[in-house]
């Protein structure tokens, strides 16, 4: 009971946060029922994720390699704050990967991992306020890339 209330509250917060995002990429309008159930989180855009671009985003703008060892050997200096992501595509399904990237605090409140698709962050540097870390399409691209890591 307690947890379902927390979930609902989180869902409400997230829904507001996501609704506030102005996006260039096309997005589905009303989230369907169960949208915030980790195992059923629907894609953020209608356009299918591009794994090649997702790999690029993971190595650069997304800063994933600063915390994760990833099979991206041309990029030096992978960090080890998070687990190795090799094989993550067989451990997790796309909806769960998506939730992980959009807002991992839903899964683990005290995580160090950034929420990559949240726009109501605290005290963001001037000029970056109100913007999510990644665009909706970039999130989808990264999800598509991670899904190939089997």
């Amino acid at each position: 009971m307690q947890t379902s209330i927390t979930r609902l509250a989180l869902a409400a917060v997230l829904a507001v946060a996501l609704a506030g995002l102005a996006e260039a990429a096309p997005r589905k309008k009303a989230p369907e029922r169960g949208y915030f159930d980790v195992s059923r989180m629907a894609p953020l855009t209608d356009q299918k994720g591009d794994p090649a671009n997702g790999r690029k985003v993971a190595a650069t703008k997304g800063l994933c390699v600063s915390c994760h060892v990833m099979p991206i050997p041309e990029q030096p200096d992978h960090g080890d704050v998070g687990p190795d992501l090799a094989g993550v595509g067989s451990r997790m399904q796309p909806p769960e990967l998506r939730m992980r990237i959009v807002d991992p605090k839903v899964l683990y409140a005290d995580t160090i991992m950034p929420s990559f698709y949240k726009s109501d962050l605290n005290r963001v540097k001037k000029g970056l306020e109100g913007k999510p870390f990644l665009t909706a399409q970039e999130v989808e691209d990264v999800v598509a890339y991670l899904a190939t890591l089997k």
Partner: peptide
């Protein structure tokens, strides 16, 4: 307190990791 685009607090880097 979490802050910034990375949404982390001092404690995440200097206590946890």
């Amino acid at each position: 307190e979490r802050r910034g685009m990375s949404d982390v607090a001092c404690k995440h880097c200097h206590e946890d990791y």
